[in-house]
Design a protein around this nucleic acid. Structure first.
Lengths: 175, 175
DNA sequence: CCGCTCATGTAACTGGTTACATGATTTA
DNA sequence: TAAATCATGTAACCAGTTACATGAGCGG
């Protein structure tokens, strides 16, 4: 059994699988369209990552020289698809499925702030969540129609709706 | 204005501030008690981090030699408290407040699996979320009573409840 | 032709993980 | 006293970010 792929590698594989043959640049664009900053899609991450995947035989590259500059177009291999499926199937430990909410982390220490600053924080947090909702809506609008993608977007929408209610409750409890 | 602290640094500062003077080991224990694997609290992360914070004047250390082994006990400085507050007050960009859900990420590519494996995934996911809920409950049971901590735990509970409903809907949509 | 954006990378830095070393304390 | 666990670290490795270099195409 080969080394399992990391989350970022899996998403990249998935992206190449979805989009079909594409350059590192296209992959980066996909990452950057996402409403989350988790995977920034910086060049320094993506280009080396695709090279690693190629060395492991999970993608293969074809040289496409538009004009004079060299460029590589990657496509997924059967081994790559299989690695992607293995990643999906891999059991997740309870701690690994934890939802990460940056606002929750801050809430833990919010009582370090004086009341006025606390209220200000809550206002800013609510605004940020609304902005995040907008990002999600925009992202969803540009997403291809597929049940998995739909459901993923729905997940993001619901989690944010809950956060807004939570923030409202927090305002009441702390205000 | 000094360099802002990272999230991990902030949590560490907050932990030292809360707990009062404590060793790196105590800080690690706090991290490891958390239901999330996000900050694993590995020694290789925490010990150097506290040293960095000390160099920046955000914590100060006192040598406590119980028995014969050297050890350092850290406490937060006024500058440290101020850095913690600055972290709390710092505006968050919309993309930075994104909720990260590992299950959502996988859902994006779930259609790569054959139907039977998909159902299996949904079962496993539901079980993992329930286990996660248990971890949260245990954590909450051992948490000190403070509004911020209460609210943070409530956030975790609610987000997971929503995920369970979402998984149920997904089962219907995909099954 | 100048500046802007698109596009393809690379290199240095940073911070976290893994794995290890070691000593002290508890438990069988 | 042997084994396990608590506790304090360190070092090598690895992946991601930041910042840069470079070239092509395009609009003014």
């Amino acid at each position: 059994m080969a080394t399992p792929v990391t989350e970022l590698e899996a998403i990249t594989l998935g992206c190449v699988a979805r989009t079909g043959p594409c350059t590192a640049y296209r992959v980066r664009q996909q990452f950057q369209r996402s409403p989350s900053a988790r995977f920034s899609g910086s060049a320094g991450a993506i280009y080396p990552l695709l090279k690693r995947l190629e060395q492991r035989g999970l993608v293969r590259s074809r040289d496409v020289a538009t004009g004079k500059r060299p460029a590589s177009e990657y496509s997924i291999t059967p081994a790559g698809r299989s690695a992607l499926r293995a990643w999906l199937r891999a059991p997740m430990a309870p701690r690994e499925v934890a939802v990460d909410d940056p606002l929750r982390t801050r809430m833990l220490f919010l009582d370090e702030l004086p009341p006025a600053a606390r209220r200000k924080w809550l206002d800013a947090a609510e605004e940020a969540v609304r902005a995040q909702e907008q990002l999600i809506a925009d992202f969803a609008a540009g997403s291809p129609d597929a049940p998995g993608i739909d459901l993923a977007n729905e997940n993001a929408r619901r989690l944010n709706r809950v956060r807004l209610r939570w923030l409202a409750d927090a305002r009441e409890r702390l205000g």
